[in-house]
Amino acid sequence: MEQAWLDARARIAARLVRWFPNREFFMRSEGHVRFLRVSTRLQASVAGGVALAVLLWIGVLGWALVGQILAGSNRQSLLTREAAVASAESRVSRYRANLDAVAGDLKRRQDFLEKAVQGVIGPIPDTLPKGTVSDSSGETARTVHKISLQMPEAAPLARIEARQIAFAERLTRFADDRARAASGAIRKVGLNPATVIADDARAEGGPLIRLGAGVDPRFLRLAASLGQMSAMNTGLAHIPNAMPASFQYISSGFGVRTDPIEGGAAFHPGLDFKGPKGAPIYAAAAGTVSFAGQRQGYGNCVEISHGHGLVTRYAHMSRITTHMGQPVTAGTPIGLIGSTGRSTGPHLHFEVRINDRPVNPRPFLEAPFPHVFPENHVVGRDAHHG
């Protein structure tokens, strides 16, 4: 091992001698000649120093170049970030500038929504029973004030939100008031409002599409109240309240009477409306024709099922103008006044039956249903209401 090291040194020394042989120089100065001898070792040392200096110089140049590249890259990154910030600030500025336009558009939509709702259900009274509906006017006023101080440009949006919440709560109170009035009207004719709603609810279906999380509970409360009002509205529409004919007078009432043909006391299960032969007969409420034909004692007869076990019967017609299975609404023509069956002259025999038991039709026809949901009763239909 030591011998190999000695051989390597010998080879290196031989190369240095070849590259840098001993050299002698002479210099003449003031008539004298001087000899300078430059050894191999000195030449190698000087060459090594020069090489080291060159390497250092190259290293410094390389570092400077790398520094310039890094500086350029950092500057480009900085410029990119500045451009992104400037772009974001520009967008924010545009959004802020457009907030007034957005607020104006939302205000117009809210105006349209309120007018559209009032066009369907009529004007909403300013004073309504509060019931269980929340009153957020104080909370929304504080929110508007806070936003106006912290973010003035968003204040118009906060005011529109406050207006929407106030309208939702007002409409909720309106729907609750309507539902209470309808419930009272249904009870007056001897029906249970809960049963009416339950019967309607059994005829529903469709895919389940849940509302997203985070829906304001005040709007969920509004949806529930509108659903209750709608159910009551549907229930009322199926309760006989429209006059079944334009009559001259009621010739015979409900209950015990003297039989017009055989004499003696007899039970009369309906009302008799005297009218001219051929005068139209109308459905007293929405429903489906469940019978159209002849029944013993009734002559030409039509029966309409209104749900909830409720049926109306129209008898002694001169002609039937409807058919089984036909859906009808209040005021739909279903036949003509006549005197078929057990009858002494042209009239309409009208019955209301609950679970096939006759009840007095007067409370149904005299109930103030049109005043509960007046928007449901058009002029043509109102002509048949008592």
Rank of each mutant, 00 (worst) to 15 (best):
S87V: 09
Q228I: 07
H349L: 15
G122V: 07
A47D: 01
E262H: 13
A101T: 10
A154R: 03
L348V: 11
G299M: 03
A158D: 03
V117T: 12
L128P: 00
L56I: 09
H306C: 03
R142V: 13
R357Q: 11
R357N: 12
G72I: 03
A64V: 12
T234N: 10
R357M: 13
G278F: 08
A283S: 14
I334A: 03
P129R: 12
I69E: 12
E366W: 10
P193A: 01
S148V: 09
R81F: 12
Y249W: 08
A279R: 02
P129N: 10
G335V: 06
A279E: 12
R91I: 15
S90Y: 00
M324W: 05
G270I: 04
K146N: 02
G253V: 09
D111E: 11
E82A: 15
V215G: 04
K107E: 11
P217V: 06
A97Q: 13
R91P: 01
F273D: 00
V46G: 06
N98H: 15
R210D: 15
T322P: 03
V46F: 07
S183C: 06
I281R: 09
M232G: 06
L211Q: 10
G72Q: 15
T321F: 00
S252Y: 02
S39C: 09
D135L: 12
T80L: 02
G325K: 04
D199L: 13
E114D: 14
G386D: 09
N376R: 10
S29A: 13
T288G: 04
N192V: 09
S29G: 05
R81K: 01
A116G: 10
E375G: 04
G122R: 12
H145K: 14
R173M: 06
T143M: 15
G264D: 04
L236M: 15
P368C: 14
F167Q: 11
I160K: 01
V117G: 05
A223V: 10
S251N: 03
V196K: 00
F25W: 13
I209E: 05
M324I: 11
E303L: 13
R81C: 06
L208K: 13
P217G: 08
M232R: 10
Y282S: 02
R15C: 07
I239D: 06
T329P: 02
M27N: 00
F267N: 04
N300M: 02
D126Q: 07
G122D: 15
G270M: 05
K277H: 13
D126A: 15
V215P: 05
L79E: 05
G212A: 13
I69R: 09
S73P: 00
A279P: 02
A155N: 00
I165Y: 00
V120S: 07
A203L: 07
F254I: 07
V302E: 04
A286D: 08
S318H: 04
E153Q: 15
V38G: 03
G278M: 06
Q110D: 13
D100T: 15
E2T: 14
Y282C: 00
K146I: 08
H384C: 04
R362D: 11
Q248E: 11
R353F: 07
A284Q: 01
N241A: 13
I354N: 05
Q150D: 14
T172V: 08
G338H: 07
L271G: 04
V378W: 04
R178C: 02
R75S: 13
D200W: 05
P333D: 08
T40K: 03
D200H: 08
D272V: 00
E375S: 10
E82W: 12
F254D: 05
